[in-house]
Design a binder for these strands. Structure first.
Lengths: 235, 235
DNA sequence: CGACGGGTTGAAGTAAATCAATAGGGGTGG
DNA sequence: CCACCCCTATTGATTTACTTCAACCCGTCG
């Protein structure tokens, strides 16, 4: 659980496992970091905002995304408790962020963190590490979106979630999907219909069960790995 | 030219415009940072390597990519002179890197840079800034790969290159393509045939000329922007 | 010269998108 | 408690954008 390499396929949130926001933000004045509650679909920030803030997810799940003028949406990352958001936003990263499930989020002004860095230089390195991890996990997402088939995309996605919940070496796993089919589609670069069809085909293959639409039970992790084309180690 | 926001559509290399590797690496002992010459297609590093190094492109163009077990390739970024590579590689980012055109690349052991950071803490912040910019430009790439049509993908790609060469506000632009159609295809997540077809359709639309296969002349930047669906500002 | 690597173009096939109908689930109000 | 609605998900039928397969061109190099 402590090594990034334990999550080769993790979502853009594996930073939690290695280095939580809490770790980076420890020692910051609490008055400078107010906590906000977000209901599902509520916006944390949008493209237009100045973006002088970092955020840490305390509870629930949020996602950051970009919208094209005709409404097409690409979700860039899902963020779970412990994840930091906002690194990169100072410099022209234009994206929005909203709650996927009810959430609690702490915000920290960049300026406050900058001041802290002056007195505790190791903070910058920790922040660098968080950015580094985000970058690394983004690469997985890239291969997934750019080069994988619909089945492989969904399998990779479920595999990453399963590993996040149940670790790497379990033979089966059960977990909740906080996001809707639409969210998954916009993360993987496909349509809800295709997502739905791939879910049922995975079910019919016996790889997963869907007791409810929001609950996934992976019956055969190994098969799921095969389908995910997750052979990211053998080459 | 000095603001990241001037390159909303830049490739994963806009860092050059804002903060060159030279800037970050200034003052490092030259003996610690040997320069290597790479011929086209020569490998700088591959997935298996330990990855204890940062690299700075001095000349030419390189690309980093990931390969799936059956040979499918996704190019993650093209890197031009001034760009830094290797941030994020310490922590489980498994990708390879090779020269797209003959190149000169300087390598710096992470350990050396780490030592420098001890004495000059502001280095960590500069590095953070580089990571930040890489992250931001990666988001553009994401929307492109995940949600755009073939024409929009190619238009976005050419637009980014045109802006890099000729700035933001020119009405026309001419530049070289150091990479092959295959490289472009693997960057945009499509096939060479589709890339080729979209090139000719852009040509027939009068948006671009192709005096040679490696030379692009953009006749109408505005139209190209339209086609790129680059309305990343109006929403 | 022939071979080879890149590029373009054409014809045919297909995975996924689109269009469209139906079903389920959770909450509200009559 | 049932009826209704709204939102989300599933499933089916059809279309299409892109891929795949294949031929061909062109410049370079041994």
């Amino acid at each position: 659980m402590l090594q990034a390499t334990a999550f080769p396929n993790a979502l853009d949130n594996s930073s939690a496992a290695v280095l939580s926001g809490i770790d980076v933000l420890a020692g910051l004045d609490d008055r400078q970091s107010p906590v906000r509650r977000l209901a599902r679909h509520e916006t944390l920030f949008s493209e237009g905002d100045e973006g002088g803030k970092y955020y840490e997810v305390l509870e629930g799940v949020v996602c950051s995304f970009r919208i094209l003028h005709d409404g097409r949406r690409q979700i860039l990352s899902f963020n779970y408790p412990g994840d930091m958001i906002g690194i990169g936003h100072e410099l022209g990263c234009k994206c929005s962020c909203e709650a996927v499930a009810d959430a609690r989020v702490r915000s920290i002004p960049v300026s406050a963190l900058d001041r802290s860095i002056k007195t505790r230089p190791e903070l910058a390195r920790k922040l660098l590490k968080v950015a580094t991890i985000e970058l690394a996990s983004m690469h997985d997402h890239f291969v997934m979106v750019g080069r994988k088939s619909a089945t492989e995309k969904l399998a990779s996605f479920l595999l990453a979630l399963a590993r996040r919940e149940c670790g790497d070496d379990a033979g089966t796993a059960t977990f909740q999907l906080p996001m809707t089919r639409t969210d998954i589609a916009d993360f993987l670069g496909m349509t809800i219909e295709t997502v739905s069809r791939r879910f049922t085909s995975l079910r019919k293959l016996g790889v997963i069960d869907l007791p409810q639409t929001t609950t996934v039970h992976v019956r055969d992790m190994f098969l799921l790995e095969e389908l995910a084309d997750s052979n990211e180690d053998d080459c």
